[in-house]
Write a protein that binds this DNA or RNA. Structure first.
Lengths: 205, 205
DNA sequence: CAGCACTTGGGTATTTTCACCTAGGGACTA
DNA sequence: TAGTCCCTAGGTGAAAATACCCAAGTGCTG
């Protein structure tokens, strides 16, 4: 891990915050501390991004569980590691189900937490590349006109130009032209690529 | 719930098994009991299917956690609800991560278990249709010969018959023949369908 | 109004795919 | 040994896609 890694730590207990801040500093990890989930969210709203989020579960206001749900809802993919003082199995189950990356009981070994973070960062590295690629594809798709999208949809469904033409009540020749435009704009070199791209795009939202 | 619902209960403790058997019988739920994960797997191998699996975590031989991993690996989608005697948070986290549907601590309310089962069945109803379809596709794919799979892979990647031929060092004509076999066996009517099927198959494992 | 993008349609030629068919050689099995 | 399955490859003819070209009408915008 390096100073390039930026972690958010959220806990209403000042002592825990200080302790983790010190520990992470020694590990060469950049850390931002927040006393509440709301404070943290305010920071993200002003554009700050974190590679990983470490949060207490039980806090006044928004709980760690609420935070995970909120982040997932907002589409923020940063992994969240929850820490709890009580050995609460039901809470752990609920946390993992809503998408928390890990759930660690207090008192915990700091190395255990670091290992979990490391693990989270490794797992998240791959999908991040996909996410960037998907945004590119999405933006390309958005440049298509309505007609071009219709043609693309039907082409991806496996219809021939003739079939598409009769469905849209235009000549197969026109379909051919639209199709060529679609392929060029999307950046697909053949139908197989177009289908894969279409599936990726429609899978996310 | 009705007698149409068929649940597997796995526990090495005969008393627990009897208790749950009785309880489920009163709830009009068909139940099959197994003293070990191995016994259960033997039953599935001979074709038995269950709507939901309730299993103890700590058992001699294969643990409940191992069972979940094994089932996921085998592509069996039936929800697994794990029960444990010890309030083990780490175990719960691991279980949910590998795909267990729920993780319940003993001693537990039997109604709580039933609610979880109900929940699992509801959640699984929709994907089950997809799962069945996917199993069909998977089995069809398995009937393909090695050569046919190679051709299918390359075709799905968007290569033309000529390109595939030069890659596999066979004539384009032979590729054409293989391709026709693949399409027929998989049940795809055009390349777009084939690509979607291929993506579905390789997405799961 | 002139320019631009989009839609529509056609032409022409080449390439590719699809749907049939035949056919030999190799490996495995009842 | 005969049957079956697979891989190989060729032929024919129809259908479709691809790659270029062209042009006319529409609608929006600087």
């Amino acid at each position: 891990m390096s100073v390039l890694t930026h972690i958010a730590v959220i806990d209403d207990d000042e002592a825990v915050l200080d302790s983790l801040r010190l520990y992470f500093a020694r590990q060469d990890v950049e850390t931002s501390c927040f006393a509440s989930a709301q404070d943290f969210l305010a920071a993200t709203r002003s554009g700050q991004r974190f590679d990983c989020i470490v949060s207490d579960v039980r806090m006044p206001g928004m709980s760690g569980l609420d935070l995970v749900q909120h982040l997932k809802g907002a589409g923020l993919a940063a992994p969240v590691i929850l820490i709890t003082g009580h050995g609460d199995v039901d809470m752990a189950v609920a946390a993992i189900k809503v998408g928390a990356f890990d759930f660690i009981e207090k008192p915990f070994d700091e190395a255990r937490l670091l290992a979990s973070i490391q693990n989270a960062l490794n797992k998240m590295q791959q999908p991040e590349i996909d996410a960037v690629e998907l945004e590119t594809l999405q933006s390309r798709f958005n440049t298509l006109s309505a007609r071009q999208r219709q043609v693309m949809e039907l082409a991806v469904a496996g219809l021939s130009n003739k079939e598409i033409g009769s469905q849209l009540k235009i000549s197969p020749k026109t379909v051919e032209n639209h199709r060529a435009w679609v392929m060029e704009r999307i950046g697909a070199r053949n139908i197989a690529e177009l289908v894969r791209i279409a599936m990726k795009i429609q899978a996310k939202p």
